[in-house]
């Protein structure tokens, strides 16, 4: 476990003790790891604010069903009903995304747009990379999170809803994936 993940787990545990009677689907429970209103302040954890509703629901469904596994998320999602997943999807899709915490390096700023075009990022995630339907917003997402996910896709180790991300990441080099993460993480969500 990385330091960030450890601290996230610790703060999540602390939160549980403080907010003991909360419902399983209480969006405030998500804040411990995903930040206030779903804007993550922990580099390893994704922002879930202003993500498409269907994406949030699908991601939670994947964790609940065991298709996607994560030490923090799997047990959180395990207890949730479909109605609760929809409620969380609605809530976080309606929160406004905060400005990015990451500042893109000069090299990635120059190469990023071309790579996003070349590897078809804009084709599915949209021209401003804000996501649609079951596809997430990646503009302004946490850099560490993006980087780790892209490398997992390339390695064929990340749950993939339709095979698109695995094939896209496999065709890019490790270096290009890092550049893409650097570029995308610094974009303003708009």
């Amino acid at each position: 476990m990385t330091f960030a993940a450890r601290s996230a787990a610790a703060s999540a545990a602390a939160f549980f003790f403080l907010a003991a009677p909360a419902r399983a689907a209480d969006p405030q429970l998500c804040a411990a790891c995903h930040g206030p209103n779903g804007n993550s302040q922990i580099p390893a954890n994704p922002s879930i604010a202003q993500q498409p509703r269907q994406f949030i629901e699908t991601a939670l469904y994947q964790f609940r069903e065991g298709n996607r596994k994560n030490e923090q998320m799997s047990p959180m999602a395990e207890k949730l009903s479909n109605a609760e997943l929809r409620e969380l999807g609605k809530f976080f899709s309606e929160q406004k995304a905060a400005p990015p915490q990451h500042k893109t390096g000069a090299e990635a700023a120059a190469a990023g747009p071309g790579l996003a075009e070349k590897y078809n990022c804009v084709q599915c995630h949209g021209p401003k990379l804000m996501g649609q339907q079951h596809i997430p917003r990646i503009a302004g997402q946490q850099y560490d999170y993006l980087r780790v996910q892209l490398h997992l896709f390339k390695a064929g180790k990340r749950a993939d809803i339709d095979g698109n991300m695995t094939s896209a990441a496999k065709s890019a080099s490790e270096q290009e994936l890092d550049t893409l993460a650097d570029y995308v993480a610094g974009l303003s969500p708009q």
């Binding site: 994947q62 298709n67 996607r68 064929g156 749950a159 993939d160 809803i161 339709d162 095979g163 698109n164 991300m165 695995t166 094939s167 496999k170 065709s171």
Partner: peptide
């Protein structure tokens, strides 16, 4: 998981399209 549309990403050829 990979089957949500039409196929498995894991079984496909390296760098191949879904």
């Amino acid at each position: 998981i990979a089957a949500l549309f039409a196929g498995s990403a894991l079984a496909q050829q390296a760098a191949g399209d879904p």
